[in-house]
Design a protein around this nucleic acid. Structure first.
Length: 457
RNA sequence: GCCGGGAUGGCCGAAUGGCAAAGCGCACGCCUGGAAAGCGUGUCCCCUUACGGGGUUCUGGGUUCAAAUCCCAGUCCCGGCGCCA
């Protein structure tokens, strides 16, 4: 199926002002929208001219067949000559048209999704709006001083960043013993919970090709954020959204199939280019992390209901773990390229005072991002369905939400469930997944460096 | 990795160089007391206010006045052989 731009061409032609407003509100400066309109206009003229020439050629071509049938070779020769002339003319016109179409296509792929009309207009992340704050009314008794997760992880010997730098590089980490167990427990817990909410599990392939990356909107704009495999048209999965959404690419679903709700656990790989110097300690910003992702395919009229439900389904993870959090609505400037509306869920990590946290101290960590893409991804990826009362297909709406990103939840647990003696209480719902372990006590470190540090005799 | 076979609409499936069948499904209409059956129309993409026109047989090239059809390259599927945690 031919890829079309993310926004409907007819819509762009008929509503240029809405597109301009969206570009402005999203702060997209590298798109020359007037040029796109010109390209479209010019392409349509060439298209019409090419169609006329082809029409004539089709008529001549039919004539040739008839003349040959009738045995009139002289007339047939004349017609063949005319047909040859036309061939050249068509080639000239269509070559130009194809060039224009290609340029236009590239430009259209760079046009961002238009924000939903109720999204708060803003210039930067400072204009995001906090919608709710949950779980602060009945806080745990916390230690006088909370050790940040990166120090605690080292103390308990459950997170090892230094040795991962050796095997792989900075921005990666080993989880060890109870650390690794906690990771598995969180995974199983989240998957079981979302299964209760009606999600069907998927375990997707981790490398994805360029067409998939384009379908969900990572390409062409964000190529620099992803890891590319050398010599292959393959990228390391930056989020399960990519394989899962593209799973039904160019498919036509039935109305009865909808809503389709899938959850997928995958590792996610992100280069985080340009982020060096911030968050270098700990596992808050890393190049590889596990995440459970929820993806919904729904009928267009229901996508905003689905959005609210998706936020609730993601929140449920934090509610059950009894971790305090807040819900943030992204303003137009902080909406991603593909998103019409987006809420972030930020968990409270009390270990580090970063200034932007709540009055209780600590900081907010984004653990989920719930987005409605409306028909933006569907159009790029050819995701359609057949409504009952129409004979033609329509683009469906896609949504997704993390449910949740694991390392940051782990950070919140290590800090919020920390005890005075430096151990960590395992939240109730996770215990069945950890062989009934109630408290993480860590292990003795291994190796000579521990002796030198006075941690081992 | 090697050898062979294959890819045509939502589905199935014809056409082997000269207008891409037929069937199923679906929608609408006629018929009916109502339904079924039957009959008719429609059912991909693009341009066009419309009338209408163009394109489309996995993808990309080539041959030809003309390609679903012939040639080259690629992708994926099936079968066989090989290899393999």
């Amino acid at each position: 199926m031919k890829r079309v731009g993310m926004l409907d061409r007819n819509y762009i032609r008929e509503n240029p002002d809405e597109v301009r407003t969206a570009l402005e509100q999203k702060g997209v400066a590298d798109v020359d929208f007037d040029r796109i309109l010109e390209l479209d206009e010019e392409w349509r003229e060439l298209k019409a001219r090419g169609d006329d020439l082809r029409h004539e050629r089709n008529e001549v071509s039919t004539e040739i067949g008839e003349l040959k049938q009738a045995g009139d070779h002289e007339q047939a020769e004349a017609a063949i000559e005319r047909s040859q002339e036309l061939k050249g003319e068509i080639e000239t016109v269509e070559e130009r048209a194809a060039d224009l179409a290609e340029t236009l296509e590239d430009e259209l792929l760079r046009l961002p999704q238009i924000p939903h009309e109720e999204v708060p207009v803003g210039d930067s992340e400072d204009d995001n709006v906090e919608r709710r704050r949950e779980g602060f009314e009945d806080l745990r008794d916390l230690p006088e001083t909370i050790t940040p997760h990166y120090e605690l992880g080292e103390d308990l010997d459950i997170i090892d960043e230094a040795r991962a730098a050796k095997t792989t590089g900075s921005g990666f980490y080993f989880l060890k013993g109870e650390g690794a167990q906690l990771e598995y427990a969180l995974l199983q817990f989240m998957l079981d919970l979302h299964r209760e909410q009606g999600y069907v599990d998927l375990f997707p392939p981790i490398p994805v090709n360029s067409e998939s990356m384009t379908g969900t909107g990572q390409l062409p704009k964000f190529a620099g954020d992803a890891y590319k495999l050398e010599g292959e048209d393959l990228w390391l999965c930056p989020t399960a959204e990519v394989p899962v959404t593209n799973m039904y690419r160019d498919d036509i679903l039935l109305k009865d199939d909808l809503p389709v709700k899938h959850q997928a656990y995958t590792p996610n790989f992100r280069r985080e280019a340009g982020e060096h110097g911030t968050e270098t300690r700990g596992i808050v910003r890393v190049h590889q992390f596990n995440k459970v992702e929820m993806v919904n395919f729904v009928e267009p009229e229901t996508s905003y209901e689905a959005f609210d439900r998706l936020v609730d389904e993601a929140e449920e993870v934090l509610r059950r773990l009894d971790l305090p959090y807040r819900i943030l609505e992204m303003c137009t400037a902080d909406l991603g390229f593909t998103q019409a509306k987006k809420y972030d869920i930020e968990v409270w990590a009390p270990g580090d005072d970063m200034g932007d946290g709540p009055e209780e101290g600590g900081r907010w960590l984004e653990v989920s991002s719930v987005s409605n893409f409306e028909d933006f991804q569907a159009r790029r990826a050819g995701l359609r369905y057949r409504p009952e009362r129409h004979e033609s297909t329509e683009y469906l709406h896609t949504l997704n939400g993390s449910g949740l990103a694991l390392p940051r939840v782990m950070v919140a647990i290590l800090e919020y469930y920390q005890n005075d003696d430096g151990t960590v209480t395992v939240p109730e719902p996770l215990r069945p997944y950890m062989g009934a372990t109630e408290v993480i006590e860590g292990h003795e470190p291994i190796g000579e460096s521990a002796v030198g540090a006075g941690e081992k005799e």
